[in-house]
Design a protein around this nucleic acid. Structure first.
Lengths: 194, 194, 194, 194
DNA sequence: AATGAATGAGTGTTCATTCAT
DNA sequence: TATGAATGAACACTCATTCAT
């Protein structure tokens, strides 16, 4: 694959990301992508077998990047801060890569692709659940229904991501911190209660 | 409109709900709907102007039903219990009307329809935000960033709904209660802290 | 056939005339006709076998009426005046029955119907041709190419009819006279020529 | 646009001319045109946006060609001969381009297209009217009702055109001359009258 | 590698006609 | 007679994909 070719492929991917993020899978047409990329119709099919393929590649890229941003919590440092940082990095992705984030959070895609995204969120939910269980076992956390609470927490972050995409420039660290504090401390004002 | 006609229309709506919930808007075709309903092609167009129209009607129905299930919290009774009941009713919808719930939570639809659903969730978020502000003012709740927390809570319920749809028979009251307790009390085990 | 029935049939015919005159054959739909007539869909098919049939009936009615208005020229009275009167009556039809006239002069219809109208105009052309031949034989008229001139005269009247339909209230006798005088005397100003 | 493309487009136009001339606008279907042209369905839509578009293009072409054949009468040469030549060229069009002529003179088309053709004939009528007025002012022609006579003359030529289309090979110069002589001299045999 | 003209299966939609009530 | 719900063949148009150059 020559440099030129690599450029063409890259151009198509970038174009597709833009188009998919604006219109979703179904309302994006090959004509939109090649027009945006400035290539001919046939050129698209040199690099990609189908519309499905390029979409899947983009989708997998998004999921990989998101996974990369979630780092396992180690015991050497403050676990709470590590969780905040993980959420911060996820929100950063929403802000930095608005187009890509839109694709998985706002835009519609073929039922057959859902597994890719759903799988990812399920994995994350499982991770959170395991962490909660650990925290409970260690006596730090209340003995909650970990499955439910894990789902709730993932749903919460997703929704905040959506808002981050729309708002654009938010203080992701602050938001992540607020979220974690809320999850840990809850809403009750306990000042005078103990 | 005769009884027949009402039945036919109803049959088409029911068929469409099923088809849309399985395939989403784009991959659902008129042929699928009429086959499911057992009517002729032309019959569909007696009752609906287009595929868009019937989808919109179904979407609006879902949103209306969800709104109906969210009752304003009054001061005469325990507010916490009322919130739990609201969430319970929403989760009940996910369990009772799995197909309809799938449409708005899992399936893809035309960008032009998103507003209907998005508007609804924005309204709910706004409601939650206002409630939080009231609780803070009355000194019951901590002074949190109400916008962020409201979004987080709505996202949490959405995610739990998704799980309810998939799981099928869950104890919605218990789940709602768990969720509210988590939101109020947080995760920190405070037994020995005060 | 009861009186009621006759009324229904008549109502459908009148409605069809109006609709056909506005939209032509192809863009007129059964729904337009029954809406205008205030009958049910099925009622239409009690009285007419098809859209074609009712159109044909109307078309034939128009042609019959036009034929009725063209009276053979007799030798007892001034032949020129009789011709003027014939043309006047044709133009009167255009003015009195604008809708019907529109159908044959402006609106589009199925190729299979053209014969009905074309036949009529051909007959008229033949009549004019025969008259011209007679006039030439009797020495009143110049020895022209009767076929060409007959066609020209029929075409002239058709075009004047179209104008009569559009203008609405014109002095049809005057126009008919002007036309005949032109045909007989031509345009050359011969005042000083003989 | 490549040579191929131009050929394909041309082929479609030629096919459409043939089909439209045989069936009129409404009874011509895309399938007829592409079958005649020997292209695939989609190919049609590469070159034309819709059935309406290709029809309009053809219609406009006809009107343009007809306009091209009507040359303004100049004073340097015999005006009568120039008029004869104009009519001759119009009749030549009917003979040379029978298919195209059929489209505007015999075949049915959407009401929305009529303006294109009507406009043309109105323009021509206006031209004739102005010429008549000039002739009257210059004392060559009798003071007739120019509007009526102009219409009559246009209608006459239209009808002769129709005949030319059907007959096929006629002496267009002779017919044009006959027509003009008739218009100028009328039918009265004036041999013994002055 | 790159092009872009050509393809054709597949969509939504229309509308004259039928028929049970 | 009258109704109007139901029918389905037929139509214009779309768009992912192919392939000769």
């Amino acid at each position: 694959m020559s440099v030129q070719a690599k450029n063409t492929r890259e151009r198509l991917i970038e174009a597709a990301k833009k188009v998919f993020s604006e219109k979703g899978f179904f309302e994006s047409h090959i004509s939109h992508i090649i027009e945006e990329a400035g290539t001919a119709r046939g050129t698209f099919y040199i690099y990609f077998e189908s519309k499905e393929e390029i979409f899947k590649e983009i989708l997998k890229g998004i999921v990989e990047e998101l996974k990369r941003r979630i780092k396992p919590v180690n015991v050497k440092e403050d676990p709470i801060d590590q969780i905040v940082r993980n959420i911060e990095r996820i929100l950063d992705f929403a802000v930095e890569e608005r187009e890509l984030s839109k694709i998985i959070l706002f835009r519609s895609y073929d039922t057959s692709f859902s597994t890719i995204v759903d799988e990812f969120f399920k994995e994350v939910t499982e991770m959170v659940k395991t962490s909660l269980e650990k925290g409970i076992l260690m006596g730090y956390l209340k003995p909650v229904n970990t499955e439910i609470i894990a789902q709730a927490m993932v749903g919460a972050v997703k929704e905040i991501m959506k808002n981050a995409i729309e708002k654009g420039n938010i203080d992701t660290y602050m938001v992540a911190k607020e979220l974690v504090e809320f999850a840990l401390g809850g809403l009750w004002d306990v000042k005078g209660r103990c």
